[in-house]
């Protein structure tokens, strides 16, 4: 009861010239409303495919995904996906990107909401810029602002900071936490950055190499804001790295 997202025994294989390649095997878990779950695993293990299935962009071979007890039939406005390489439309200005996704609202409300979220994300003064005129960090803010402005119930984040350099990444980690804390969406985040997961998530699912199976479930029972110097987090980090086979 009370499950926002219920994932039942998902299986997925891709056809290849040498026969089917299994990428997801028997993955199941549930998320309660407002929970933040990070999916951590080696790159290429099938996390992104899993997230695509959870958001309705792809279909599993077996198993199903229930959102609010209803089977997932395709992407919906209530669950917004933030793509690894970004999907802010490069032919529209920042402002146009924001208002386009609010098309069902009256124009005045669109402007108001767009301005509110642009300000929130620290993007004042960039409304008329085109995405290619922005730095990677700024672009990521647009990405998040555009996702949040529709006030989704669920956020799917696929390596949201993956494209950034290390320094910008640290800055944006703080920024993202601030933005997400305000909205309290149910959040699924794929990452290969263990610290990122530890700082943000309520629970971490550690995945095995391909085919992806859940290898460990690590609750992170510490209040926000967290810093990586916290001894509890340090212990958890070691535990997760050990699960990933990166530390003995």
């Amino acid at each position: 009861m009370g499950a926002k997202i219920c994932v039942n025994s998902l299986w997925k294989a891709f056809p290849t010239p040498r026969g089917p390649l299994s990428v997801i095997e028997d993955v199941g878990f549930t998320l309660t409303e407002g929970e933040f779950v990070a999916l951590v695993g080696p790159s290429g293990c099938g996390k992104t495919t899993l997230l695509h299935i959870l958001a309705g962009f792809d279909r599993p071979d077996r198993g199903d995904v229930l959102v609010d007890d209803l089977p997932m039939r395709g992407p919906r406005r209530t669950g917004v996906f933030v793509f690894q390489r970004g999907a802010v439309f490069p032919w529209l200005t920042v402002q146009q990107n924001m208002t386009l996704v609010l098309r069902d609202l009256p124009p005045a409300t669109r402007q108001e909401l767009a301005n509110e979220y642009l300000t929130l994300a620290g993007l004042q003064g960039f409304e008329r810029s085109y995405p290619h005129q922005l730095s990677g960090g700024m672009l990521q803010r647009v990405e998040l602002a555009r996702a949040l402005v529709t006030r989704p119930e669920i956020l799917y984040l696929d390596e949201p900071l993956g494209a950034l350099d290390a320094l910008t990444r640290l800055q944006m980690r703080v920024e993202m936490r601030r933005l997400l804390a305000r909205e309290r969406c149910t959040t699924l985040m794929v990452t290969h950055d263990v610290e990122e997961a530890l700082e943000m998530a309520d629970r971490i699912l550690v995945f095995s190499p391909r085919p992806a199976t859940i290898q460990a479930v690590v609750p992170v029972p510490f209040p926000q804001p967290r810093t990586m110097t916290h001894p509890g987090l340090v212990a958890l980090k070691e535990e997760i790295l050990r699960e990933l086979g990166l530390q003995s």
Binding site: A55, F57, P75, R77, V80, F89, L100, D104
Partner: peptide, 21 residues
């Protein structure tokens, strides 16, 4: 594909999809 998926995700209608994406 990510642009088309994003448009689908935000529920753009068929006309808006053609006009803006």
């Amino acid at each position: 594909r990510r642009y088309l998926w994003a448009a689908e995700n935000f529920g753009l209608g068929r006309l808006a999809l053609f006009r803006y994406v």
